[in-house]
Design a protein around this nucleic acid. Sequence first.
DNA 1: AATGAATGAGCATTCATTCAT
DNA 2: CATGAATGAATGCTCATTCAT
Lengths: 219, 219, 219, 219
Amino acid sequence: MTQQDKTNRASWKQNPEAVQANILAVATEEFAEHGLAGARMDEIAARTRTSKRMIYYYFTDKETLYQRVLENAYRKVRMEEAALELASLSPPDALRRLVEFTFDHHCANEVFIRLVMIENIHKAKHLSGSELIAHVNASAIDSLAQICDRGRAKGSLRADISPLELHWQISALCFFNVSNRFTFGKNFGPELFEASGQQRLRTIIADTILTFMTATATD
Amino acid sequence: MTQQDKTNRASWKQNPEAVQANILAVATEEFAEHGLAGARMDEIAARTRTSKRMIYYYFTDKETLYQRVLENAYRKVRMEEAALELASLSPPDALRRLVEFTFDHHCANEVFIRLVMIENIHKAKHLSGSELIAHVNASAIDSLAQICDRGRAKGSLRADISPLELHWQISALCFFNVSNRFTFGKNFGPELFEASGQQRLRTIIADTILTFMTATATD
Amino acid sequence: MTQQDKTNRASWKQNPEAVQANILAVATEEFAEHGLAGARMDEIAARTRTSKRMIYYYFTDKETLYQRVLENAYRKVRMEEAALELASLSPPDALRRLVEFTFDHHCANEVFIRLVMIENIHKAKHLSGSELIAHVNASAIDSLAQICDRGRAKGSLRADISPLELHWQISALCFFNVSNRFTFGKNFGPELFEASGQQRLRTIIADTILTFMTATATD
Amino acid sequence: MTQQDKTNRASWKQNPEAVQANILAVATEEFAEHGLAGARMDEIAARTRTSKRMIYYYFTDKETLYQRVLENAYRKVRMEEAALELASLSPPDALRRLVEFTFDHHCANEVFIRLVMIENIHKAKHLSGSELIAHVNASAIDSLAQICDRGRAKGSLRADISPLELHWQISALCFFNVSNRFTFGKNFGPELFEASGQQRLRTIIADTILTFMTATATD
DNA sequence: AATGAATGAGCATTCATTCAT
DNA sequence: CATGAATGAATGCTCATTCAT
């Protein structure tokens, strides 16, 4: 029996991690789609390869499941972000690259964006300050801090904006682009969210950040 | 008992508009706090001066009530925005004033921000394209368009950014500041959302927009 | 001002009898369609030319209204039946004529049939033994009794079947034809309830009654 | 405690079929008594050995429960009817036997009669053309067809009346006897529905059918 | 006589969660 | 580990009826 066979045979049954991962995946979709209150445990169970009983066995209750979904989403997203390699670029180029990456990444992770929106509706009460999350978030600032430091040393980036503030701005523009496209689109037309509009916004955002960060500090 | 007293006494009874307004006010808070699925009709009724039955009498069902709450919130907010007088300022000053006003206004209207977040979770399916809403949204773009036109004429604002794109950027920065403060605060610390941090963000946002809009277009 | 004008001018307003008649007509349809429990006072009021308050003013409550509807339906139907003139025909011809008339009349008064079905569901508890009803029902038996009497005298109709029993048989066949056509049709096909099928049933029923009543009594 | 006792003790718990049968039995009575709109889910639940929740668990909603009640009633009644053995009797005797059986059977199944009345009020919209029902109904006609065929071959029954028409007539007379006894009794006196009156009606109905079916066809 | 507003009790249905095997 | 059955508290909603003017 090869390793492959062994994996196949066991499939997901008798495999706690696989079962949990499956539940988590289904729950992620369900919570992202309907929110915490709107999601239905029955629906999650039905779309799972296991039973409702197992969900409670592994995740205790709805709220805990939601919390695990949220943590999981943060971890995955931040890990992808951390994989970006910017050290070889000049500070302005690295910054532009980071903005564009963030823009693309948020677009590609609507599920995550929705979970964050939902969590903000709940005033972030489920967002644990777990070490993992803290560490993973810190690294997001770190990589910006490195660019800022290099930029300040060279004089190519203004020094009076903190990495945190810069991160905040990039986040705002890239997050809003995904989070509010429905209402914004209905209110002001869908153009900005079609392919060409998105291309333009992507450039505008990067230009905005770059223009600002390469400008001389006002007085 | 004066006439005034007589009017005040139970002035909301047999006064359909007052009853509806009261229901709408309570429902607005409840929906903003808990979302569509999370809000409880019983709770809304309990905090109302009338009974649950009257809510259904005037608003048919939960979803319709939510829709009316949403429409009402949009109307009120957009009307306040429209009251801003900018014609007497130079285009850059007008723009800065508009950004700062938007920042302040969003901060002061968290309930509205939350309703918009919630509506985005529902993919804006309750946001009717009612004439009123359409008209009121158009005016938001109009006032920016006037600033842009004047700025282009004078050469004081770049002309290659549309009023819609400009509005999008201002919205993104000011909206995110309120909508995501909980998760952002928990992830990266609360400094940016305390008084001094907000003051700084307010300035940074305005500077960012201004710097960008007064820069020469990148060819 | 002519009488005609006077009638038109007053129309139905300030005309208690017209208002009551209107309510009764609408309620009759509603109760016949949905039964006592299934009928909706709101719906009746909405389809009326007057208001809900007036219904309660004139008819006290739902059950009383239903009772009045029922009485009214009986009175109208029995009066139409009583108008049939049979004295000039031979007893067998008169009987055949009566059967055919009953068949046709029941077909034409589905609303009445449905009200009677509904009242039977309620075990006839609303069917008052009011003098009017009693009188009007008695006349139905009377006209059959006359035929039977004449038939017995002539020897053209058997004498061992009472007018009541005869009425029961005619009623059963003609009533069932209307009351049960839906289930019978779904269970055994719609043929019997299409035009040609009905024509045939009409003849079969009359033949059945006639054959029976002209036969010699079985020992 | 014997094995039997153990089985009896709470034998309906964890026994889905028993639970469903119990619900169905109670619901049958309740719907037959009050109709679809008049029946109360709370009342059904209260008279059940389970909870209201279980009714919804197994039957989805009120209308579906009613439908299942109806189907179930039809199945039971038709099966009892099919058990009647007539092949050994002469066609006229078989026919008389069938009429008398139908009369007795309808008398003994008022609940079924009432459900059919109620279903006719709803224009038979819940009567599914399920295979089971179709098959079970067809057999009712089949057994009559056999009698008719044999009667035609021997010349002892007239051949110009179809089994369907014959079934219709028998049904009408026997159904009406149960369905309309309340209004008919109140309108024309209770005699026909007391023991002796029923005995007489039973004979009259059989005689009527027999006289008709053994008569020569009217050309 | 007439009407829109108001109401409380009740009704069908749902949901997260736990039990029995 | 796994699963169908079971549950109670709530949840959104409806209905006949009455009040205030």
